[in-house]
Amino acid sequence: MDKSKTAGFFRRYFAQVLDTFIGMSITIVPFFVLTFSAVTAYIKSPMELNPLSLVPPVALLFLMPIVIFFYSWYFTHKFGGTIGKLLFGLRIVDGNGAYIDKATAFWRMTVGYTISSTFLGLGYFWAFRKKEDLTWHDRFLGTKVLTVGKPIWGIVALVLLKILFIVLLVYFVTGVLPQFLSIPSVVPAPELGYTQPAL
């Protein structure tokens, strides 16, 4: 195996982080936006609770992981990796250097990742061993991850997404949370221990 072409652990790790951020930005962020808009509407008009307004965020939360699964499967087979990997200049190939077929891509994402996750994710850290940069799922499925370009676009995307998340967090803390905190509090019922006459 040509050592100079296989991707190291850290590059693969940051590509995975970028993929996670992309996944979060299309799953968690819309979920929070939809949920908070529904809850805000409820707070503004507490007597008009509409349960249907909670359907989109819940459906999104359940369905998006499946959408991401199929997207990852398709991209891995068609383009040699997910967006995170592509931006970091990585390509998943088989022993002959070609993009992996559909079946291998499927098994790599299901069985492969499950195998690597056992023993507290030891299979991922196996990439450090013997300087082959191969994880357990690479070894089982006969795949390898090659570097085909510079990781600059991946780093830029990662930084931009990080900034976006920080901005969203700041907006949430300064813009959304105060709305909830300024709600008039419900008057507490008399403390426990008192007897109360029947009304």
């Binding site: 007597m47 008009e48 509409n50 419900v186």
Partner: peptide, 15 residues
């Protein structure tokens, strides 16, 4: 006595 805690919203059962 119980204020908002006791106030029953127009619960949309169909929804």
């Amino acid at each position: 006595v119980l204020g908002m805690a006791q106030a029953s919203p127009n619960f949309n059962i169909a929804g």
